[in-house]
Amino acid sequence: MKLTVIGCAGSFPGPDSPASCYLVEAPFEGRTYRLLLDLGSGALGHLQRFCDLRDVDAVALSHLHADHCFDLSGLYVVSKYHPAGALDRIPVLAPAGTGDFLARAYGIVEPVGMTEQFDFRAWEDGGTVELGPFSVTSVLVDHPVPAYAIRVATEAHSLVYSGDTGPTDVLVDLAGGADLFLCEASFLESASNPPNLHLTGAEAGDYATRAGVGRLLVTHIPAWTDRSEVEADMKTTWDGPYELVTAGFTCQLG
């Protein structure tokens, strides 16, 4: 399994990174299978540095905020209008209603929406689906819109992605024993933070410790937030291997 951070800026694209998008790859039937976790604002352009857009096999959207899903519209254009011909329809795992939501956002008026290009499948809280070499499990987390944390596992390795969430112990169960825990930390312990929205570095570190993960990858830090303070917060609760990820960061498992 290989993880590439395509974009990791919190809440909106920053000067050094697009918004949330993570490429997860693993061997499958003699080739490389490519799954995208989120496809937020600005990510589609940077993604092309790492793979041909025609080689994306599936997309998993944690929730329907712009910084996590809006560049699916660009992938729709590539899929429908590519000069070599329309691409094969691919699965898009996402909250219920995603197909209609993104079709309206894009301005599609015909009845089929985006369904000729994408096979939209709604998440089930606690459900697991198979995508190529991956078993993908989703759990509902704490955010103003329906949002899911996602566990991606092969026979040998596992990665857990928090998506966007306020504090919730479901992350401990989902991340239990994972090799990598890709966890958001948008807030600072020193600030007065709104509830039910995001995590601090200390909260991300606490969940990583309690879940016994192999490595913590901190992500979704907004451009206006002091990364060194996020890191200091995280170190109060986590003493294992970690990285505050940047766009282009890669990690190979196995």
Rank of each mutant, 00 (worst) to 15 (best):
R215L: 07
L36D: 00
H68D: 08
S41G: 08
V112I: 11
S11W: 12
L174D: 00
Y242N: 01
S162K: 09
G7W: 05
G248A: 06
F187A: 13
K2D: 08
E130H: 14
H46Y: 05
L180F: 07
P13A: 06
V213P: 01
G40C: 09
L64A: 06
T137C: 09
W123R: 01
M1V: 11
T237S: 15
G166F: 04
A86C: 06
V145T: 14
D164M: 12
S11V: 10
H65P: 04
H68P: 02
Y161L: 14
L217W: 13
T128C: 14
H65Q: 13
T4P: 02
A204C: 11
H68I: 05
P194H: 06
D169W: 10
G166H: 04
T115F: 05
L102K: 09
D71V: 03
V77I: 12
A86F: 07
G248H: 02
E189R: 09
S228C: 08
P15W: 02
P195I: 14
T154R: 03
G113W: 01
E203P: 01
S162H: 11
L140T: 14
K80G: 04
V112C: 11
G42V: 04
L244G: 06
A191E: 14
S135R: 09
L61I: 15
T209F: 07
P241M: 06
Y106S: 08
G177A: 07
S79V: 02
V136W: 03
P111S: 06
T137Y: 02
L87Y: 14
L44E: 03
A211K: 00
H143D: 07
D71A: 01
T237D: 04
L3C: 05
A19C: 10
T209C: 12
